[in-house]
């Protein structure tokens, strides 16, 4: 048996959130997500959480589990080495119910950086030719599954909802690094702003919690460097 402490809050009924305790029959290899399903199916059908692929690729089930933001589907209970599993929703977003948060702001911030290739053509008849080296420049930057762990763990996002966030900044570098994209200057100017890279306080929480082991901190650092060089270049010329 494992004890689950689950964050419960229904804004329509509850005045304030509470933690509720459930006893979950723990099988070997059981993940936290399966534990939550056990509660939903056997103990309390009103419990709310998001889930989809259960294979750590869709990014639905990001939550705060025993001291860290993680994907519930990827976290095995026995690996937590604890008799209790404490589950909370992602921070910095309004709670819709229980573990489900409103990610509108998260995605709105992403949409601000124009998350698509800026290139109106003309396009080659076949694919763009891209060297293996150019393609390597996109490695890891493209692996983000937009789960929101980094955004929830970032203290800068907690004090400024207009801060673009690690996810959006990493996406920006992904496009700047892509030779197919023609919006590099515009993108750099946009993220060199107060709510862009310079709102980052270099806390490294995004890197620490990323369930795909990516490094948004490094992406932001590289953007900062580009922004500084760009400004210096403009000053000189």
């Amino acid at each position: 048996m494992t004890t689950f402490n689950v964050f419960r809050y229904d804004p329509a009924i509850d005045k304030c959130p509470k933690m509720e305790t459930f006893d979950v029959k723990n099988e070997r290899g059981m993940t936290v997500l399966e534990g939550l399903f056990y509660i939903l199916e056997n103990l309390d059908p009103t419990l709310c959480f998001r889930s989809s692929c259960r294979a750590a690729i869709c990014g639905s089930c990001a939550m705060h589990i025993n001291g860290q933001y993680r994907l519930a589907c990827r976290t095995q209970i026995e690996h937590l080495k604890s008799d209790t599993v404490t589950v909370r929703p992602i921070a910095h977003s309004e709670i819709i119910k229980d573990l489900v948060v409103d990610m509108t702001n998260f995605f709105a911030n992403l949409e601000k950086i124009k998350p698509y290739i800026i290139n109106e053509g003309p396009f080659p008849e076949r694919e763009f030719l891209q060297s293996e080296g150019e393609r390597k420049g996109l490695d890891h930057l493209i692996d983000c599954i937009l789960c929101g762990c980094c955004y929830g763990a970032c203290p800068s996002a907690g004090t400024d909802e207009d801060y673009l966030g690690p996810h959006a900044l990493m996406k920006t570098l992904r496009f700047i690094n892509d030779p197919r994209d023609k919006g590099g200057k515009e993108r750099l100017a946009f993220v060199s702003s107060e709510n862009g890279v310079f709102r980052c306080h270099t806390v490294f929480n995004c890197q620490e919690v990323c369930p795909k082991d990516l490094d948004p901190s490094s992406a932001i650092a590289r953007l900062k460097m580009k922004a500084v060089w760009n400004t210096l270049k403009n000053l000189v010329s």
């Binding site: 293996e132 393609r135 197919r180 994209d181």
Partner: peptide, 13 residues
């Protein structure tokens, strides 16, 4: 053309 990051061959295809 929309930016899907396909892996590349040695000659860029």
């Amino acid at each position: 053309h929309w930016g899907c990051p396909y892996s590349r061959t040695a000659n860029g295809k």
